[in-house]
Design a protein around this nucleic acid. Structure first.
Lengths: 335, 335
DNA sequence: CTGAAAGCGCTAACAT
DNA sequence: ATGTTAGCGCTTTCAG
């Protein structure tokens, strides 16, 4: 015999008042005699009453007072940093955060977006995966507010908050060139990803601008993780025309490259990585990186979404955050 | 003129069928003529219809098909690792994950738990903060399934999944003693925290068991972050009776201690830390740590919760996960 | 195969 | 200060 969850009506009967009076107490409306209010409150406590959120929101025509976040991989510190910043901002507005990891799978992303929309999230922040973003446009058309973070969704009229990937890469590679390097290798992940494209472009731009070697063999992309980067770096270093420096496209690949250098006993090769990481300053030499702040990215994305929820109807805009070169030693090794 | 969101009734009218038939199509019931079904589907598409989840769940008496997670700090890789594992498991069951960070504040935790319960999450996973867990018991009494992870909530009859903190600490300190250390310092965070208590206990137990120095001045707790640990370590090292080894209570404190050693130019002091961290093997020497897997913790907590949701009514149990000592060099330095 | 009516639990009007 | 009635959008009897 599983006792039915008590409803407002049950409370009303127990307190010997009408449903409406009970509702008044629940909602803190003032026009209730203190004595009556107390009786109602007692009844609620005795019954362990909890208002039914669905009924309430249905009646009010409200949304779920939560925002949805579809992110790539919550276990990656960069993305969880974004998520945390968003969660903090949401908390300030008494909104809950519903999270789903797309695992870079466009279909998973699509399903998550749909599920979140169905649950009537107040707004959505997405790290877009894949290339077909029709489902996002469809939600926008239905009136759901969407903000993209870390990369834009091509062809979707939504706000975007991104880091200056291209500029950061140019900064990194120019720095290496200034140290005297001519043969600089680029290690990157999925070449079709927006961030990869931008970083690769910055790499190329810097090479061209300063007349460094633009040898296609030096650019290795499609590296999914640290191990792949380690293999690629080792191959390059032991090949016929090795690089004297690496520019690595993300934190995992940086770590992979450093493992390769370590295992080959090479201390004469420079490394600059995109993304900072824990203990980067404890490695010897310290790892020079292009840092971009995940928390800032998340914060600004949340703020953009809230502005929209508050009625901002201006044209969708791209917000690009600056990045910084943190020199710690590994990028200052000369050839 | 913001057009009202179309309802099932609107769809029914447009398709010139009854509400019920439309509902049948929506729910994929078979007893609808294909032709009728098509008309309804067309109407839905034309109107951009989306079923109202609140109405649906209200009518069905269902919960929100999501699970709540109240965690300490999503930006800490350890906790985001837990969160990610839970999210993956939830995804397999088509459940969404609603996350809130308590920031170690019991009042924030209480509010989050209440909010999640009100939203009718199917179940709750909590990293308990503080000491008064009455709100958790209250939810349990109302029938909400709760699993605690990383630490138990004292006095609450809920399942718990924790790492073997005490055993891990004993392992670490015994290892240092075996290297010949007698004066081993313990750096810990908030001394009232369950994990801290356990790790501290393991430290003491090992000291006592092997007759190493149990000097109270060597144990420093209440260190909130890496910087605090760095200061504490430096003080100890430059004090009258310095330790020859450190056992650090979490990843942040380990990094702080390493910074202190680095800045003092000390390479003769051993360090073993609780928690593994990114690039721990790239530091020189590699950092010896007690590793416990956040993903395992999350996975098992989720599995426990799902078992409960599936009707398991056995007594609440504590699941303790083993930890492993990863020797990389820093813990093998002899005095 | 299709439809009319009732009701999930709550709040907003409109009484009293 | 309190109560009555209607209805949010959906699904579920129960009829046709």
């Amino acid at each position: 015999m599983t006792a039915r969850r008590p409803t407002l009506k049950d409370v009303a009967e127990r307190a010997r008042v009408s449903l409406k009076t009970t509702s008044r107490v629940l909602n803190g409306e003032k026009s209730v005699r203190p004595e009556t209010e107390q009786r109602v409150r007692d009844a609620m406590a005795e019954l362990g009453f909890r208002p039914n959120d669905f009924a309430r929101r249905l009646r009010l025509g409200a949304d779920s007072s939560s925002i949805g976040l579809v992110i790539e991989d919550l276990s990656n510190p960069f993305y969880s940093g974004i998520a945390h910043a968003i969660e903090q901002r949401a908390h300030e507005r008494s909104l809950l955060l519903v999270i789903g990891s797309s695992q870079r799978d466009p279909e998973t992303e699509r399903r998550l977006v749909l599920a979140l929309s169905q649950r009537r999230v107040s707004g959505l922040i997405v790290v877009p995966a894949g290339h077909d973003h029709a489902h996002l446009s469809a939600e926008l058309d239905r009136g759901l507010q969407i903000v993209c973070v870390d990369r834009p969704a091509e062809g979707v009229a939504a706000d975007v908050v991104v880091a200056d990937n291209e500029g950061g890469a140019r900064l990194a590679v120019t720095h290496l060139i200034r140290q005297g390097h001519r043969r600089i290798s680029y290690l990157g992940d999925d070449a079709k990803l927006y961030t990869s494209i931008q970083r690769r472009a910055g790499y190329q731009a810097a090479l061209t601008l300063h007349g460094a070697d633009d040898d296609p063999a030096l650019a290795r992309t499609g590296l999914p993780d640290a191990t792949a980067a380690e293999h690629a770096a080792r191959e390059l270093l032991t090949g016929p025309t090795p690089p004297t420096a690496f520019f690595t496209g993300n934190n995992l690949l940086t770590i992979g490259a450093l493992h390769a250098l370590r295992s080959l006993g090479r201390t004469d090769v420079a490394v600059v990585g995109f993304d900072d990481f824990e203990a980067a300053d404890l490695v010897v030499p310290g790892v020079t990186v292009v840092r971009h702040d995940a928390a800032d990215l998340g914060r600004l994305a949340a703020d953009r979404l809230f502005a929209r929820l508050d009625g901002d109807r201006s044209d969708p805009a791209v917000k690009m955050l600056p990045v910084h070169l943190i020199t710690r030693g590994s990028g200052e090794i000369t050839p």
